[in-house]
Each structure stands twice: as C-alpha cells, then as structure tokens.
C-alpha cells in the first residue's frame, strides 16, 4: 500500500484483510421523513433513513433532510407504521378501491397522496377512523384532491414524531449557513482581474 496521506487515517489502524462473514447484518429499522419547507407548502416526503428509535430517527432526519434553506418542521414515522396502497393505473383513482365508508371516528390518521409517478408524496390532511383502510374511505370525501390519486400512504397521527413549535428554533440559522450554498462562491471578479493581468 502507498503511504497514507490523510493525517486522520494515519492515527487509526486500517484493516487490510477481508472481514469474517457476519452471522447477522446490523440491520436497523427504516423510517420515512416529511418536511415542511414553507408555510404555503404541504408536508412533503423527502426520503427514508435507518435508525434505532423514532427519536433517533428524528435526530438524523433533521440534518439529512433539512440542512439547507428554510424549514418549519419535520415529521418522522417508522416505515412499518405506514399503510401503503397499491399504485392505481393511469387515469384511475386509488380511492376507487376505498368506497366502503364506515363511521369516520376513532383514531386520527395522516393521509399522503402521490398524484404522478416519479413525484413525492404530499400531505393531504387528517381524518378520524378505526383503521387505515377506513381512514382512506373517509378521506375519499373529506380530503381535497385536485386530480386522481395514484398512491396513498396512511399513518396514525400518534405514531409520528413531529417537531414542536419550540423546536422551530433549531432551523433558525439554517438559511444563513451560506457556506453550503453555490451562491457564496462567486469567481467572476477574480477571473476578470486575472485576465486583465494576463493581457
């Protein structure tokens, strides 16, 4: 091996031999993250992550999914706590599968819609119902949908870790971290001055 150039690595002991096969992989549960970036925008699914607990997932979500720009808060839920519908065929509405409207009371559920393939799920609203399927049947009439819904997710409101109003302060300085933004690295003047010295 050539000389190690990274001083951080010079202080550690690297492992040159393949590791023995693991009896079991360190497989952590997965979580889904929703972000509200502006007041006028709905909560939007931003992606997934691995974590141990819901609280740890919340801690991780903040820096992986909201470390730039403005953010008003995040919601996190375990993937296995989300009920996921099939994907409807084009032009049909997934709500066609949820017509049996039972009593719309009971637990509170957050409902998310995907309107077009390739896009992110966004929050449609909250309904009360006894089960996730029932929640969709209730959402069918209770929640607005500008066009047919291709796929829906439903999660019990109580299963989310939602940021609190006091926690909003954690994002207060995020927009000011300009060292993470392209806009903070302007080169025009420097290049212009350089060219002037060349000619």
């Amino acid at each position: 091996m050539d000389k190690i150039l990274d001083p951080r690595l010079q202080r550690l002991t690297l492992i040159n031999e393949p590791l023995p096969a693991k009896p079991e992989l360190d497989q952590l549960p997965t979580f889904e993250v929703f972000v509200k970036s502006r007041a006028a925008r709905p909560w939007r699914h931003e992606g997934s992550l691995h974590a141990s607990t819901l609280e740890m997932a919340f801690v991780f979500a903040k820096e992986q999914y909201s470390r730039r720009g403005t953010c008003l808060g995040i919601w996190v839920i375990a993937t296995h706590d989300l009920f996921v519908t099939d994907y409807a065929d084009n032009q049909t509405d997934i709500y066609d599968q949820f017509t049996e409207a039972p009593g719309c009371s009971g637990e509170a559920w957050e409902v998310f819609h995907m309107y077009k393939r390739g896009t992110q799920h966004t929050h449609a609203g909250q309904v009360s119902a006894p089960t996730p399927q029932a929640a969709l049947a209730c959402a069918r009439n209770a929640l607005e949908r500008p066009r047919p819904v291709l796929n829906a997710w439903v999660g019990a409101a109580g299963k989310f870790r939602k940021s609190t109003p006091e926690e909003e302060a954690m994002w207060q300085t995020t927009p000011e971290k300009l060292f993470r933004e392209a806009i903070d690295y302007k080169t025009n003047e420097k290049i212009k001055a350089f060219k002037a010295t060349q000619s």
Partner: peptide, 20 residues
Amino acid sequence: RKFTGEIRYHILHANEWIKE
C-alpha cells in the same frame, strides 16, 4: 441569542445518544 437555537439541536442529538 442567534446560536441557542442550533445548539438546542446539539443537545437533542447528544442526549439521545447517551440515553440509547
């Protein structure tokens, strides 16, 4: 005042790790 908000995250993070 400006930085207490972001440091709040630092203790949230550290506390959760210590507890786990």
